[in-house]
Design a protein around this nucleic acid. Structure first.
Lengths: 225, 225
DNA sequence: CTGGGTCACATCATATACAAAGTGCACCGT
DNA sequence: ACGGTGCACTTTGTATATGATGTGACCCAG
């Protein structure tokens, strides 16, 4: 009667989850090869589930599969990064418009809490986590689960590079400032201000991100994709 | 020197493309089982590429895989359909805002041409095709290829149901009217009007679509997903 | 040296065969 | 009629073999 145990999922999913986590954390560098045999051994499965997992990750934009040459951790051009953030911006502002009228004290408190937590932690992983919680709390009340999960997928594609941003610039400080401004306007229910600030925040992020990627690629041989 | 031949793609992609086409055309009905062995025989391959192709299609939202029970053509709840069209609406209106200032006589002419073509054809497949051309021409000049392909993927998930809509209601007539109004405002460069009309058009579509799906599901046993 | 060609090796892509596990259904005895 | 049992079918995964493809080292000619 109790909802059954997680049922020991398919090994394809287990492999996909593990590799996805590695990619998101930056454990595997951009452009690094993902050899089927190696992954199969690491996870104690044959290469068949590995192939399927890689294809899954390719669909999520995290790896790129080059026929007959194997899979590598996907790179991201400055153009792509910019466009991904534009999409995110478009969707997020719309979500906030829907959510704002429904926002209550609970939402305000939780958004503020994740902001505080992100301020206090030194750990990059934690910061990313709290950052996501902050953003997603803002539009939780919009009740658009698929839209949120779509934004989540978009985010996964850029998180690795945001991570670089965090270590190389004052991005974190500026983001924090911008988040506070967004939350202030959000509390007041000022839709125009929230959307404008949020848009500015993501535009700002996109600019810095494109710069970091450009600069990062400068050190690599061309044709990295 | 000449751009090399299509290179006879991987059989995984061949299978995925063929099955995708079948699903989009409605050749395979919603909820119908996609048995690995059957597909393998039809395409003259083993079950391994078939599995990968199915997983690929699952990532695109066209089939749903139930662990240990196989793959079926994905269904769509009214809620999901509505949300998908909301996403599309959000992205399309933004794209049109970017594209409108760049639109020239060529764009106007091509949009009008696809509208005319869609008016004249009796074939449903053709209508769908011209419909897509019309929409995508409107924001071609936005120069956001990834955003467009994202919309394309969203569309693939709902096209099968639009098809039903076409055969069961006056949707086609209304859509044509709405398209003409959109194009008129577009020619004038009236951003506000275009976005408003486009939003209305997609909202209208979403309403009718949700109704059709609801009604369609009424005839099916529950728990179809 | 240097450019080009060749060859061996690593890896991928797919096939085949088979084992294990889950689902659903039919059958059977009560 | 009804609840349990077992079987058949399917999916999932492994093991292994084979062909195809790309990579890089090596060698030879100029």
């Amino acid at each position: 009667m109790t909802p059954r145990e997680p049922v020991e999922r398919l090994s394809v999913d287990a492999v996909a989850d593990a590799v996805r986590a590695d990619i998101l954390r930056g454990t595997i560098a951009v452009g690094e090869a993902l050899r089927q045999e190696t992954l199969a051994q690491r996870f104690g499965v044959s290469h068949i589930p590995v192939r399927e997992a890689l294809r899954q990750l390719a669909a999520e934009g995290l790896v790129s599969i080059r026929p007959n040459r194997g899979a590598v951790v996907a790179s991201l051009s400055p153009d792509e990064a910019t466009e991904l953030l534009e999409i995110r911006c478009t969707l997020e502002t719309q979500l906030v418009r829907w959510a704002l009228p429904q926002a209550d004290a609970d939402i305000h408190a939780r958004a503020a809490a994740s902001l505080d937590l992100s301020e206090r932690t030194a750990d990059v992983d934690r910061w990313m986590e709290h950052n996501w919680t902050f953003h997603s709390t803002l539009y939780e009340r919009a009740g658009r689960p698929r839209m949120v999960s779509m934004i989540r997928t978009l985010n996964n594609q850029i998180d690795r590079f945001i991570r670089v941003l965090l270590s190389r610039s004052d991005y974190r400080y500026r983001a924090q400032e911008e988040h506070r401004a967004i939350l202030a306007a959000y509390r007041l229910g000022n839709e125009v201000a929230v959307c404008s600030l949020l848009g500015q925040h993501l535009l700002d992020t996109s600019k810095q991100l494109a710069a970091v990627i450009e600069q990062g690629n400068a050190g690599l041989p061309p044709g990295g994709r």
